[in-house]
């Protein structure tokens, strides 16, 4: 994944111009999910919906596989991907668990520990 200049933090990516161009179609599709009718249309025909928004093969694959890190690598922006996650009934702890390889309970416990 591209890195904006000066950031070298493991597991941390900045959504810069390169990513914004790469992920445009994917993010545009996720932006459409603000509308409940579009969320239903996606659920009714996921592949067709991805095709209509012009996702490339890689973006369609990571959508199909619900691959969170893959969605980020394909140019997905977290603010727009959050709307896709909502369709799937996933909250941000589910996403955190998926990205860190932890169980959801372990991820939530990590958050609690941060407050101590």
């Amino acid at each position: 994944m591209t890195q904006a200049s000066g950031l070298n933090v493991p597991g941390t990516y900045l959504f810069d111009g390169d990513m914004a161009m790469k992920g445009y179609a994917l993010n545009k599709m996720c932006f459409s999910f603000n509308d409940a009718a579009n969320r239903q249309a996606f659920a009714a025909d996921e592949a067709g919906y991805c095709w209509r928004y012009g996702l490339n093969d890689e973006q369609s694959r990571v959508v199909r596989e619900r691959d969170v890190l893959g969605l980020l690598a394909a140019g997905g922006n977290v603010y727009y991907l959050a709307k896709f996650a909502g369709i799937l009934g996933l909250d941000v702890q589910d996403l955190g668990a998926a990205q860190t390889g932890m169980s959801k309970e372990a991820f939530k416990q990590m958050l609690l520990e941060a407050g101590k």
């Binding site: 933090v9 493991p10 597991g11 941390t12 990516y13 890190l69 980020l72 977290v78 991907l81 959050a82 941000v92 996403l95 955190g96 990205q99 860190t100 390889g101 991820f107 990590m110 958050l111 941060a114 407050g115």
Partner: peptide, 13 residues
Amino acid sequence: HQLDGERAGFINK
């Protein structure tokens, strides 16, 4: 807070 990437869940009190 951090929502995305393998460092998701990062907090710095």
